[in-house]
């Protein structure tokens, strides 16, 4: 999932202050918790209360889209609702927000969220952690399903480095050393010989900006 956090409300109020009729578009897609219909509604309520305190009366429409990053899907859902709307506030990640900006070139589209990374949730602890950087050359097959590019602070491909201490990273003692995790996992799988293979430096060209599906 793509991990986002809400922007402060005063920042949003600053964006929106020139406009009155606003569409808040939720996204049911990949965030956790999903910023869908409920968050769109909650945000509209908060902004309305915040607007009143600034002597500003907004009129909100709230809706949600299964995946805002799908321009075809987003356009079919949102276009019929756009009549009279002066600005769009997107609850999606940066991708969804950009998609809406493309769909509605004549309208200002604002992000309601800050987008952080591609990650996963530790549900019991309620923590989200980065798991993938989109490097374009997936190594998970040989690293026991644990990504050193995303999870090693130094992005090492032939770890661990000398700074690993009691399984933790020297740069952040809270963080597990990804290479120790890889070692333990491969050991459990009986595939430690995979570690003997040298991996050449990453080809940064692979994390390019366009691919054909």
């Amino acid at each position: 999932m793509i991990v986002t956090t809400p922007k402060p409300l005063d920042e949003l109020l600053d964006f929106l202050s020139p406009y009155t009729n606003i569409l808040i578009a939720g996204c049911d897609g990949c965030t956790q918790p999903p910023r869908g219909l409920r968050e769109a509604k909650t945000l509209s309520q908060l902004l309305e209360l915040g607007g009143k305190l600034r002597n500003k009366n907004f009129t909100f429409k709230v809706t949600t889209v299964a995946k805002q990053c799908d321009n075809y899907l987003a356009a079919s859902i949102l276009r019929p609702q756009i009549n009279g709307v002066e600005a769009v506030l997107s609850l999606a990640c940066g991708i969804g927000t950009q998609t809406l900006a493309e769909i509605f070139p004549e309208l200002p589209v604002f992000p309601a969220q800050n987008t952080h990374f591609m990650g996963a949730e530790e549900r019991e602890a309620g923590i989200l952690e980065e798991r993938c950087v989109g490097c374009g050359d997936c190594l998970l097959a040989v690293t026991g399903g644990i990504c050193p590019v995303a999870r090693c602070s130094k992005g090492l491909l032939n770890g661990a480095c000398g700074g690993s201490k009691e399984g933790k990273c020297e740069l952040d003692p809270e963080k597990d050393c990804a290479w120790i995790l890889i070692y333990e996992r491969l050991k459990k799988m009986g595939k430690l010989e995979l570690l003997k293979e040298f991996r050449p430096p990453r080809d940064y060209q692979l994390s390019g900006w366009r691919v054909t599906p």
Binding site: P8, L9, L46, L49, G50, L53
Partner: peptide
Amino acid sequence: ERLSQIGL
């Protein structure tokens, strides 16, 4: 916490 952002 969110209400505190608008002073409520």
